[in-house]
Design a binder for these strands. Structure first.
Lengths: 144, 144
DNA sequence: CTAATTTGTCAAGTACCTTGCATATGTCTG
DNA sequence: CAGACATATGCAAGGTACTTGACAAATTAG
């Protein structure tokens, strides 16, 4: 069953990513963080904007942002243009964390390419993207 | 990034599966349940055996079993051969639930095959299985 | 200026998982 | 058979990631 394969592979890759980042000295990174971090503009992005990009609710983003803030990868600042707005932006650690995450994920993908062949990996990605394009109305941004 | 695609597709398929089962009158099914249910022998299976098959800890299985028991899909009985053992086995609702889960997951896969072509879907599955075979030491049983 | 809308937060609850510890039962050795 | 050890499960606490509902403050529309 496809679902079972998806669950196992997702878990494996998530755990592997966090583990390798730790070994490289980035502590406190969690599998869910790069999804938010990868959607942050360099000047920072508002909660609602992140929610739209990530295809989730503002509440979920606010909560996730709180966790990521505790881990030190982002900080919240008031939006000078809109008194209601809160801008989430990178700390220095956050930028380092994101680039490490990308490195590690790329490294893992290279290993998978070693198993499947480069074409195989590209096919895997494009097949998944094909399903999501047809079934998921969410846009695709940032790290996606 | 591959990980992001995996997360999105997994979530989508999980939610879709549970939603469709509800529409067919199976209530209380959760995405995690078929993984256990699909590893149950017809006579039932012990917690430890399930843990081994599912590649997880006995605690996680025991807890999941409690949830699934509350939902009415399985029941616990003592192992007559081993006083320490607890056998988890299907209720009538559980058998109906599992077969509905398989129907629904198959139906979703057929829809994906409509997007990717049958060959595309088969490729997707075999590519994922290829990675897991090389990287995951867990055995493959039941619904996998 | 009032009313509606947008924005973010708080609070509670759910799903699934982890680790550590306790306890009951079984097996093996002397 | 007793004692030591291993195995099987349960209990408790905690953590991550999410959901829904309600709310107050700020902005915008009429």
């Amino acid at each position: 069953m496809l679902l079972r394969l998806l669950i196992r592979l997702t878990r494996q890759m998530s755990v592997e990513t966090v583990t390798r980042m730790q070994k490289r000295g980035i502590h406190g990174m969690q599998p869910a963080y790069p999804r938010l971090l990868g959607n942050l503009d360099t000047e920072g992005t508002r909660i609602g904007g992140l929610a739209r990009r990530m295809g989730t609710t503002r509440q979920a983003v606010a909560q996730l942002a709180t966790e990521i803030e505790k881990a030190g990868f982002v900080e919240r600042v008031a939006d000078p243009q809109d008194g209601r707005g809160v801008i989430v932006r990178f700390t220095k650690k956050g930028r380092a964390g994101l680039s490490c995450a990308i490195e590690v994920m790329t490294e893992i993908e290279v290993e998978y390419a070693g198993i499947l062949g480069e074409d195989g990996l590209e096919q895997l990605k494009s097949l998944m993207a094909g399903i999501l394009d047809q079934t998921d109305t969410q846009g695709t941004f940032g790290l996606d």
